[in-house]
Design a protein around this nucleic acid. Structure first.
Length: 410
DNA sequence: CCCTGCGCACGTT
DNA sequence: AACGTGCGCAGGG
């Protein structure tokens, strides 16, 4: 019965991205409610589905979920670009990434710009998004984390702390750090929130947009975060997004009068990923330390590709030498890779069957750099499972490494 | 009623 | 100054 149910991701992805773009061009906040509504109107798909698909996109970073001015917004990752102007600064900063994490967060909101076609990967490195995909992720967890992180922030952090999470949304609530993190359920249903605060929250003094995704550490990479276990779960039942329905329903039927039912306004529901970081004019963020921060930092500092490679080598137990060598030269020479090089890389990475597809499609180093997720997932005619792994763990990693390196060089 | 377009204020770089 | 964002309002269907 529900044809929409079967929709392919690519399609949905387009719809959603398109919708986000439309809303943006219309100067309307691309929030979940609007996105769902528009998708429904245009394509007739259920809000729930849209919500679920949107989440997938968030996880794969095709869409970025951010907290902007106290509310959740979604961004088309491909359109996000960071400031391209000041290169010098960037370069400098990049070197020392230590603080990158914060800056990333902060710039999220306005800095996003447009990345044209290069998209995804490019921005990735700047934006605090998560890179992983396979397992995980999401936003809500962060709350817990940050709270936990307590304000380590700053001494004077009052403001900061407050700002960090408290500002805009109660939900984020950070205000009470000491409170329980543990109970912070994944956003959607949350009941606890209802009592927390009235719908009307004061305008957030500070503003910054935070991306909600984080780095999953499914590889077991030991990143800096403290509790991996926690952050692993998925946040909300995407399939169900009560709040989505609710908001839509409200609109259609009651117009909001019913919120009390759940106790929250659509806005408040969103909290899942809300997290904010504030940073002083000249200081670092005050923010609490949440995983995402670490992730961002981690991303920058570590050579993802190397890491991945190492892993693969281990698991494949093969051609370590070859791969390693390749890796060494990767940064500078990815552009020089031939079709055969790419194929052997894929083979060495443990996907011999899929390597042929790369060869067939004549993917050389340059092409590899230009590959987008959809290209790998659907353009090569390979199975989704391996395709996802190849893209997330190898293609993306190589691209990232390449661009980062390029940036450093600049 | 809903969608769309846009002026304007605000925040960041 | 330039740019991204989104509120709030007006106009059109």
């Amino acid at each position: 019965m529900s044809p929409t149910r079967k929709m392919n991701e690519p399609m949905y992805r387009e719809w959603i991205l398109d919708t986000i773009d439309s809303l943006r061009s219309r100067k309307a906040r691309p929030d979940l409610e609007r996105i769902c509504r528009m998708v429904r109107r245009r394509h007739g798909s259920e809000p729930e589905q849209t919500c679920a698909e949107l989440e997938k996109l968030i996880q794969e970073q095709t869409v970025l979920k951010v907290n902007y001015k106290g509310s959740i917004s979604y961004r088309n990752a491909a359109k996000v670009h960071r400031r391209s102007r000041k290169r010098d600064d960037q370069t400098t900063k990049r070197t020392t990434v230590e603080e990158a994490n914060h800056s990333d967060l902060s710039n999220g909101d306005s800095a996003l710009g447009h990345i044209d076609q290069d998209e995804t990967d490019d921005f990735e490195d700047e934006v605090p998004v998560s890179m992983g995909t396979d397992s995980t992720i999401e936003e809500e967890e962060m709350e817990g984390a940050d709270e936990d992180g307590h304000e380590g922030s700053s001494p004077g952090g009052v403001d900061a702390v407050q700002g960090v999470s408290g500002g805009p949304h109660p939900d984020s609530a950070p205000c009470s750090p000491s409170s329980s993190i543990s109970d912070r359920p994944p956003g959607c249903q949350t009941s606890s929130r209802s009592s927390s605060r009235p719908p009307s929250s004061p305008p957030a003094p500070k503003q910054s947009e935070c991306v909600s995704a984080f780095c999953p550490d499914e590889h077991g990479q030991s990143m800096v975060q403290g509790d991996p276990g926690d952050m692993k779960r998925i946040v909300h039942p995407s399939g169900t997004c009560p709040w989505v329905q609710k908001s839509l329903v409200n609109r259609e039927i009651e117009d909001g009068a019913r919120m009390e039912g759940s106790g929250l306004t659509p806005d408040q529901l969103v909290p899942e990923c809300v997290q904010e970081s504030v940073r002083g004019p000249d200081r670092q963020p005050v923010a609490l330390s949440f995983p995402s921060d670490d992730c961002a930092k981690y991303k920058k500092e570590i050579d993802v590709a190397s890491y991945v490679m190492a892993q693969d080598n281990v698991q494949n137990g093969m051609k370590n030498g070859e791969v390693s060598v390749k890796m060494e030269t990767t940064k500078q020479n990815l552009l020089l890779w031939s079709v055969a090089d790419v194929a052997s890389y894929i083979t060495a990475a443990g996907f011999p069957e899929q390597a042929g597809a790369f060869r067939t499609q004549e993917i050389d180093g340059k092409s590899l750099l230009l590959m987008q997720r959809s290209d790998v997932l659907t353009g090569l005619s390979i199975r989704l499972g391996p395709a996802l792994k190849i893209y997330e763990r190898h293609v993306k990693a190589l691209q990232r490494t390449h661009f980062l390196d390029e940036e450093d060089d600049l």
